[in-house]
Design a protein around this nucleic acid. Structure first.
Length: 502
RNA sequence: UCCUCCUUAGCUCAGUUGGUUAGAGCACCUGACUGUUAAUCAGGGGGUCCUAGGUUCAAGUCCUAGAGGGGGAGCCA
């Protein structure tokens, strides 16, 4: 303290400025890792909490580099009190200080403040975040600020790690990343309603003689949409580069109001020449286990925070709705156990004989072969019967897409769905039909406009090979890894029916 | 789109069979406190009870419609 008053103040500030101008910001994660005490350090971040008493003030500072806060210790004097008065939860500050071993018990390293500067105030009457627990619903309404919470900081650091791990996984295996188009001219992908893309004036579009909208005058000279899948384009690339993957945004204009659907989401679609359905399943399983392991190895603290959060959430639930495993245990379980593989037909047999079916507890009783499985059935298989991820194969062709490889039985196709606890279908894929005649007849049967598919069909005409692929919903993977329960909380700015805020 | 639940202070929520001036914790402001950990203690300010109708002597509470949100279902990833 005496030091402050005994030296020439102007000279002191001059020195500080000199230091500041040269000094680089250190990230909080690096300060907390180090035991190199006594070092002058510059940090910047956002204030989580401020605790003042007569002589000393503590500021918990977070810069997003880690879930942990750095404790700033400020010796209170009249001069600094003026600055402290401007600091509330949410304010951004720059702190020049000395790293010291903490006298308190909550942390090992802290920063003894030498100079404190407010970069941006946060008026506490207006700033909506408080140092307490908020509901996820409320935070969704302030998605521009929710990054500043522990939960969303953790979620989005993990999201980055998963993005990176996906590219690393494929790169290490010799796959090539393909940028499939976002705007597509075909309406034949068969994966649901599409968003139209147009530059026509929708209030008064040009019309043809029969009063229909004249898309020949539109930007692309035809009707265009946002992509619902990059699969067909990825197949074209795979039939030359052997192993490729796409990882891009996907748009579905379905009126789906659930905790696992988005109108705009990110999908990973690998597509591999010379892979049959079993190779496809092997890759899907290997990839999911790799990604989960990557999260466990690289996002430990964030996962532990989310695990604790989830455990508290579980306590609020009635006993029969609680998870049997806590988050990290569940992740470890997935990487340590083989997925259960069975056919659709075998699944139907299990479901027919299951207790809930016999007791009439299913809303949709299982009687006949050929109907699609409802989520209650999938959940029974995954959560009750096998208690582990399940891969279902060989579905009836009527309930699956036109491009799937037809089996010799004439009834089923080589589809595969990977089902996870809580979230249901995380991957949907198949071996693709490489036989031109079979593919062509299926297109005709389903009235898919041939003129839009000529390029796809040509790959089966010239050097066709067996090939396979699948689609992994990135946000569904995020749900599983983070243990969050609503898909709107694992993407920064969710787009859902009636909601495109931010 | 269907079923169901919810909407009360900036936030999280209580509010009894319809009955006087609608409460608590947190946040904020003031004061106390020599190192706190979502600090603590004392005091203070803060309300379009989602909106519009209706029933009633009387509505936060009951009824109808609408808006927004949650959970479940369908569609799927």
């Amino acid at each position: 303290m005496d030091y402050w008053h005994s030296i020439n103040k102007e000279f002191f500030y001059f020195c500080i400025l000199k230091i500041l101008s040269k000094m680089k910001r250190t990230k909080i994660i690096d300060i907390l890792k180090s035991v190199d005490y006594g070092r002058e350090t510059l940090v910047m971040g956002w204030v989580r909490t401020k605790r003042v008493s007569k002589n000393v003030c503590f500021i918990a500072l977070n810069d997003g580099s880690t879930i942990n806060n750095l404790q700033i210790v400020v010796d209170v004097n009249p001069e600094i009190e003026e600055i402290l008065a401007k600091i509330h939860t949410g304010a951004s500050v720059s702190v020049l200080g000395k790293t010291v071993e903490s006298m308190g018990s909550g942390q090992s390293t802290e920063l003894q403040c030498l100079k404190l500067e407010v970069l941006g105030q946060a008026n506490p009457d207006e700033y909506p975040l408080q140092p307490k627990r908020h509901s996820l619903e409320f935070l969704r309404e302030i998605a521009h600020l929710r990054f500043r919470t522990n939960t969303f900081g953790a979620v989005f650091r993990i999201r980055h790690a998963m993005t990176f791990a996906i590219h690393k996984f494929f790169n290490d295996k010799g796959f090539y990343n393909i940028h499939s188009p976002i705007i597509t001219g075909s309406d034949a992908e068969g994966a649901g309603e599409m968003f139209h893309v147009t530059t026509l004036n929708i209030d008064n579009p040009p019309r043809t003689e029969d009063k229909k909208v004249d898309y020949s005058q539109d930007f692309f000279g035809k009707q265009t949409n946002l992509t619902v899948s990059g699969q067909l384009e990825a197949e074209l690339a795979a039939l030359a580069l052997s192993e490729v993957y796409t990882f891009g945004p996907t748009f579905r204009a379905e009126n789906s109001n659930t905790a696992r659907h988005l109108a705009e989401f990110w999908m990973i679609e690998p597509e591999m020449a010379f892979y049959d359905i079993n190779d496809d399943m092997d890759l899907a399983e290997e990839m999911l286990q790799y990604l989960v392991k990557y999260a466990l190895d690289n996002c430990r603290e964030d996962l532990e925070f989310l695990a604790k959060r989830r455990a508290e959430e579980q306590k609020q639930k009635p006993q029969n709705e609680r998870d049997e495993m806590e988050l990290i245990e569940r992740l470890e379980f997935v990487i340590n156990n083989k997925f259960e593989r069975l056919t659709y037909t075998e699944a139907i047999d299990i479901l027919k004989e299951s207790k809930p079916n016999k007791k009439g507890q299913f809303v949709y009783p299982v009687n006949d072969w050929g109907t699609d499985l409802q989520s209650e059935h999938e959940r029974y298989l995954v959560e009750k019967h096998f208690k582990k991820p399940v891969i279902l194969t060989n579905y009836p062709k009527e309930i699956k897409a036109f491009y799937m490889k037809q089996n010799d039985d004439g009834k089923t196709v080589r589809a595969m769905d990977v089902l996870f606890p809580q979230i249901g279908e995380i991957i949907g894929g198949s071996q693709r039909e490489e036989n031109y005649d079979k593919l062509y007849s299926r297109i005709k049967e389903l009235d898919i406009p041939e003129e839009e598919m000529w390029w796809y069909l040509e790959t089966r005409k010239f050097g066709s090979v067996p090939h396979s692929g699948f689609g992994l919903g990135f946000e569904r993977l995020m749900l599983f890894v983070t243990g969050m329960s609503n898909i709107r909380d694992v993407i920064p700015f969710p787009r859902t029916p009636k909601n495109a805020e931010f």
